[in-house]
Design a protein around this nucleic acid. Structure first.
Lengths: 201, 201
DNA sequence: GGGCGAAAGCAAAGATAATTGCTTTAGGGA
DNA sequence: TCCCTAAAGCAATTATCTTTGCTTTCGCCC
């Protein structure tokens, strides 16, 4: 289940991707087993030493996996309208939060909490990345003549709910949830009703 | 700084509170030092064995500290008005998220992420607790004749932003931030402007 | 005040993770 | 094709955390 995607590059690249996949697999796995370096190494069919030498620490490896996966699948949307862009972006954010790399991010963020300087910096970096994406979407809309909301409103009322519900495992089942959040921000209070709180395994 | 509050009770209670304080202290501390059982024990002036025997695992101890601290300082507000209650509640939530026990909660939530059954249950418990508080506030308001918003709106647009910003260390400096969130939910979109994104150490 | 049970301390052993020196292998370039 | 370097593998060491058996201390109750 691991060597199925040989990926280009030499041995180094092969090991790297095997390790990355092992992390994701272990993270997705049922029992809350510890995701330790030796465990990752075994799953990847690699020597633990190789991991320590290449990444230094377990945290660094997890961070690498998280940002790599996150950057792989988040092209900035360009639908031509503010609503379309934001909806697409929010939907992508929601789904990535539910996948292993998103949970890695959440873990990394929470673990670094008061935090060392570099942890602090990593948090800021991720925040800046999110904010930067939104910012570009809003700027483009403004250039187009639309009247975009403040970036803080988007952070607070679109990203905020998504992170909250991801953390609590209480993301609504309804796929249009991110879109609803976007619409509320764009057109004042849309939905007052619509209970969607529900746990999902 | 530790034996300053002798607390009632015998030796058992003394050890318990010393350990709790040690956890909070280590967590608040600068360098992202590992909060390990031996470290906690040393800080508390206690033998590691005592901790292992009493709490079993590090996670159980952290969870115990978190819920204890959280329950200590969150009486349900009762100001007589919906706005007052929500504001007071949101303000308390925001400040607890910035303190060590709040960060413990965030860590615990994130760490348990996909999670074992009991982790899942712990997450649900905390969510239910938050939701229960809000629910009672809203119900009281309804009984008073006010027209409270849907509970999901409060979760999404008050708690959501607070958790997001706590996670990213980007809580606005302005003390009225929680109140603004509440007002937006209660009276449609209040503030469109007012940039308040900022990092704080 | 003296004894009794529960909890803490101590020390040693057991596991597991992290480090390190050295050897081996794979791939790219002369 | 043959080196030559960078990375991986291996084995042995070291450092931690965790567990366990036993002794000691504390504090409540008779």
């Amino acid at each position: 289940m691991n060597a199925s995607t040989p990926r280009p590059g030499g041995r180094a690249a092969r090991v790297r991707s095997a390790v990355h996949e092992a992390v994701i697999e272990l993270l997705s796995e049922p029992g809350g087993k510890e995701v330790t370096v030796p465990a990752i190494a075994q799953r990847a069919g690699v020597n633990p030493t190789s991991i320590y030498r290449r990444w230094g620490t377990r945290e660094a490896l997890l961070a690498d996996v998280a940002v790599t996966r996150l950057e792989e699948d988040s092209p900035l949307p360009d639908t031509g309208t503010l609503g379309g862009d934001l909806t697409q972006w929010a939907t992508a954010a929601a789904s990535s939060l539910l996948r292993p790399e998103g949970q890695l991010i959440l873990r990394a963020l929470a673990m670094s909490l008061p935090g060392s300087p570099e942890a602090q910096e990593e948090r800021s970096r991720h925040f800046a990345r999110r904010a930067g994406d939104i910012s570009r979407i809003l700027d483009r809309a403004a250039a187009r003549g639309e009247d975009p909301p403040d970036i803080d409103r988007v952070l607070d009322h679109v990203l905020g709910p998504l992170y909250l519900r991801a953390l609590f495992g209480a993301m609504p089942d309804i796929p249009a949830y991110p879109q609803e959040l976007v619409e509320e921000v764009l057109h004042g209070g849309t939905a007052q009703a619509r209970p969607h709180t529900s746990e999902q395994p």
